[in-house]
Design a protein around this nucleic acid. Sequence first.
DNA 1: CAATTATATATAGCAAGCTATTAAAATGGA
DNA 2: TCCATTTTAATAGCTTGCTATATATAATTG
Lengths: 146, 146
Amino acid sequence: MTETNFSRKHSEGYQVNHMARLFIRAIQDRIKPLGLSTGTFPVMLALWEKEGQTQRELVQELGVEQATMANTLSRMERDGLVVRRAHEADARVQTVWLTERARGLREPAIRAASEVNDLATRGMSDQQRAEFTTLTTQVIANLSEA
Amino acid sequence: MTETNFSRKHSEGYQVNHMARLFIRAIQDRIKPLGLSTGTFPVMLALWEKEGQTQRELVQELGVEQATMANTLSRMERDGLVVRRAHEADARVQTVWLTERARGLREPAIRAASEVNDLATRGMSDQQRAEFTTLTTQVIANLSEA
DNA sequence: CAATTATATATAGCAAGCTATTAAAATGGA
DNA sequence: TCCATTTTAATAGCTTGCTATATATAATTG
């Protein structure tokens, strides 16, 4: 009887949700002084990797909905992190570029994120940490295909 | 150099956030027909366990902020899932009770959540599934004390 | 017992996620 | 070529999370 035994504490969905909220709080604390947030950080990572991507490319890469990305980019533009430039060949498309200031945030932001990752996995062996990533990757794959 | 090697795909924080969004989508799909949502579900679980809890007790049990709980309870009251009754001894306190309809949702809601948990852990051995819970619990503990 | 402090809840306002809809531009077929 | 379809992005409106602040009631203390 999975149903009658069900408990919050042993439900993967509940645990993951709780864990994600704790991650968000910890990262937020550390990147807020840089003018970044948990919504903008993944976009920054994608753009530090490759600037000039289109909104559609960012959506596919980060796995959020198109409307979420549009809103996030608007806030980022408002806050001076990115600029949107018209695509030269397709008037529907906007390409996204970092501002000079945003380019400079890479090192401290990544340092902050690494710090949180280390804190989160404190007390784990390298093997356990690798196992956590492996299992997480599998859950993502399982839920993505459904 | 953790910093220069940093990649989204191998950052625990990023992975966990992504995984949590996928869980939310999967559970939402299945409990929406019941009139439930991912914000209300944990509250329902707590109340199915024990009715008449105060807002403060629910806050402590579920680990969300007080303001978040207040808003969630307001929506639940609006949607006919709970009623708030004055505490008999302390006029500051409201106790929270399920409606008849809400009591009847327990079985189908838990079935839906179990289904998502099974889907998420598909392809894992019992041992791996237990390991996932263990590691997740440790991350929650690590981030909670900080 | 009055005044301060502590506790419980509510409200304001923002971020970041979602679905659904709209608008504009590009593409493709008759 | 022109009309219908597809693609890209923006907007509206909702939930769920947060911080900061306000308000009301209890509790404590001088």
